[in-house]
């Protein structure tokens, strides 16, 4: 997988040398986060090769590109990223690209973002980048990805459009599943012992997200925040603490122990762990797992 783009580049060059149009080969797409990779792979189908920039388990907010990553990126046609400061290292990386032949696509551009403080009570003025957890917004992103791909590979346009419609139908199904699954729940409170990645999901399905840290995943917890979270849970009879599988579960365990509750995992989904990658988990499976966790934790009928 790592050298995929390079191999493809070589084959492209070989094709070019024999006189065929370069894009007789596949469109090479790099994505910064897992959902964008999944969407791009589904839309491009056989006409594209997609790769995830980050290694499994890496945290997108804090990852740093290495020279090899820049080289890998330089050999691709299209870079898909989220924006809204989710990838603070990206501007520097793009600047380091030779020639500027790589098209870039910012998924959050033109979307109405939630402000950080709506999501979690912190981070005034900071936009919440976790848009992929809103399946309506995903549908719009998918459509734009199809347009981007069509610009690079005009012959593929009908295929991309058809694939995009199929994917959007699946996203609509998923949305309906969440809507129905989360309609009759005892609780509407997602208490997260981590950063507030689920603001979009909460907004769409009428839930309330309470996160221990706000939007930044690498903050240090403070005692009063923990005490307030404990009091909040006790007051509202909350017995389930959600934690993200990309952060250590220590704090969520502490919180759960304090209220005599339990912990359940939610996937923010921006990256996979190595185990998940080995199991070949897809975006839709992750989201279904989230739905199960939420239905379980919130006591839904």
């Amino acid at each position: 997988m790592k050298s995929l783009c390079r191999v493809l580049l070589a084959s492209t060059l070989a094709l070019a040398a024999t006189g065929s149009a370069p894009l007789a080969a596949k469109v090479r797409i790099m994505a910064t986060v897992f959902p964008l990779r999944e969407f791009a792979a589904a839309v491009a189908g056989d006409r594209g090769e997609t790769e995830l920039l980050l290694p499994p388990g890496a945290v997108v907010h804090t990852w740093q590109p290495r020279p090899g990553d820049i080289r890998k990126l330089a050999e691709c046609h299209l870079l898909l990223f989220i924006g809204a400061n989710l990838e603070p290292w990206l501007p520097g990386m793009v600047k380091a690209l030779p020639g500027g032949k790589v098209r870039t696509f910012e998924a959050t551009e033109g979307l109405a973002l939630i402000e950080g403080d709506e999501a979690s009570g912190h981070d005034h003025g900071v936009m919440d980048p976790h848009v992929w957890l809103d399946f309506e917004l995903d549908a719009r992103i998918v459509r734009k990805i199809a347009d981007e791909l069509s610009l690079i590979d005009p012959d593929g346009r009908p295929v991309f459009m058809a694939n995009a419609e199929k994917l959007i139908a699946r996203l609509r199904d998923l949305d309906a599943k969440f809507r129905n699954g989360l309609a009759g729940c005892r609780s509407k409170d997602i208490v997260l012992a981590g950063h507030g990645a689920f603001g979009y999901l909460a907004r769409r399905y009428g839930l309330v997200q309470t996160a221990l840290y706000g939007l930044s995943p690498d903050a240090q917890p403070r005692p009063l925040d923990l005490m307030n979270a404990v009091d909040y849970c006790r007051r509202r009879g909350i017995r389930t603490i959600f934690f993200e599988n990309s952060v250590a579960p220590d704090l969520s365990r502490t919180l759960a122990r304090e209220i005599g509750g339990r912990i359940l995992v939610l996937h923010a989904g921006h990256n996979l762990t190595r185990d998940e990658q080995d199991r070949g988990v897809g975006f839709f499976e992750l989201m279904e797992e989230n739905l199960n966790s939420l239905r379980d934790g919130l006591g839904c009928r």
């Binding site: 945290v59 917890p221 220590d250 704090l251 762990t273 190595r274």
Partner: peptide, 21 residues
């Protein structure tokens, strides 16, 4: 070499005085 066990690595190494079992 193992490519990707960030979270585990961190959680085994670093405890937090507020999250003691």
């Amino acid at each position: 070499m193992a490519r990707g066990f960030n979270v585990e690595l961190m959680s085994y190494l670093f405890g937090d005085i507020l999250a003691i079992e």
